[in-house]
């Protein structure tokens, strides 16, 4: 029992580190923000951050199984376009619309999972291809930006609860409790970690590797669609923006890496990815509080991404045999 806390600490090191980075960045951000630490500043920062947080959590689920989902940004864009059509009207229609959007996200994720696991294709190329399909459908739904959304619901979910807590943060916490926590504690969730760390060994021990990977891709689609829904709530419109979809895919990978999820699979958590996403967004916004030219933002984010992925190279120093370079 005495060694238990040490094990837990070691297992959650990545998540804790991500939380630390986020806390440090957010403190610098708030201290230099002209308005200081007020509910409004927190709300704006949260609303920017949760979109990426949902997409990053989606990516984390897949990356834990040693896969990757390069279509996650396009699912995000597709569900945004879909929501701008169907999340309108009476409360009942709106509720059905929300359910429809979530179902669409789940279906996209399930298609990825089916192709990668049962079709036995490389996740990189397979999800680039499905990403093209999802973007095509998004473009078909919204050739031009437009549409609308139930504004009452949108304002409620992007506002503040009791005048303090950002509602979007509450939904994010809800997603962690309803999607991530049950999954990671279930047999399938354990199997997803096993798939990431030693797939053949897991398979030999009779662990349900394939259902677990399938579930990870499907739930990833679901989480990306919650992000798409929130994008619609923020913008009130749907837009099939290719560049934006690509950027979210890219940033989700950066957020996952910052959040302590190993790209080789098997370690990290969805919660870590959330802190990674919030930290990444805060780093991007630091430029604004320091009054730098916004033109530098893409370069700055790119460099942060490059440095974040290069940090993984420190693992090479621990390698005992050069043969371990080649996986």
């Amino acid at each position: 029992m005495t060694g238990d806390w040490r094990y837990r600490l070691a297992r959650n090191r990545g998540t804790l580190l991500a939380f630390g980075i986020f806390l440090a960045m957010f403190t610098i951000y708030v201290l230099n923000h002209p308005a200081g630490f007020t509910a409004n500043v927190v709300q704006t920062a949260t609303n920017k951050g949760v979109l990426l947080a949902f997409v990053a959590m989606a990516q984390a689920l897949v990356v834990i199984t040693a896969g990757i989902d390069l279509s996650v940004g396009m699912i995000f864009i597709l569900t945004n376009c879909l929501a701008s059509w169907i999340v309108v009207g009476t409360p009942l229609q709106t509720a059905l619309g929300v359910a429809g959007v979530l179902a669409a996200g789940l279906a996209c994720g399930a298609l990825n999972g089916a192709i990668v696991i049962y079709g036995r294709l490389q996740p990189i190329v397979a999800t680039i291809a499905t990403g093209a399909i999802y973007f095509g459908i998004a473009l078909w739904l919204r050739p031009y930006p437009g549409g609308s959304v139930n504004e009452g619901l949108a304002d409620a979910l992007t506002g503040k609860l009791f005048g303090i807590v950002p509602a979007s943060l509450a939904v994010l916490a809800g997603a962690v409790l309803i999607v991530w926590a049950p999954f990671s504690r279930s047999v399938l969730g354990r199997a997803a970690y096993a798939a990431g760390s030693a797939e053949p060994a897991g398979y030999m021990s009779g662990i349900p590797i394939r259902p677990a990977k399938f579930m990870a891709y499907a739930l990833g689609g679901l989480l990306a669609s919650i992000g798409g829904l929130f994008l619609t709530f923020f913008t009130y419109t749907g837009e099939a923006a290719f560049a934006s979809g690509n950027a979210y895919t890219l940033f989700s990978i950066a957020a996952v890496v910052l959040g302590g999820v190993s790209l080789y699979g098997g370690t990290g958590s969805g919660v870590g990815a959330i802190f990674g996403a919030l930290a990444f967004r805060t780093i991007g916004d630091l430029l604004f509080v320091f009054d730098l030219d916004p033109l530098w933002q893409p370069l700055f984010q790119g460099v942060v991404l490059l440095v974040a992925v290069s940090l993984g190279a420190f693992g090479l120093l621990r390698v005992r045999s050069r043969l371990e370079w080649f996986r």
Binding site: I115, G119, R120, L121, Q122, V125, A126, I128, A129, T130, G131, A132, I133, F135, G136, I137, A138, L139, W140, P143, E199, P200, Y203, I209
Partner: peptide
């Protein structure tokens, strides 16, 4: 339209990969 082209691309690549690019089963 561009939308249809993207969808056809995607389907074509997945279809060709399913024919030639499958990894061996566990």
């Amino acid at each position: 339209p561009e939308a249809g082209r993207q969808v056809i691309y995607g389907i074509l690549i997945v279809a060709m990969l399913l024919l030639y690019g499958r990894t061996p089963a566990l």
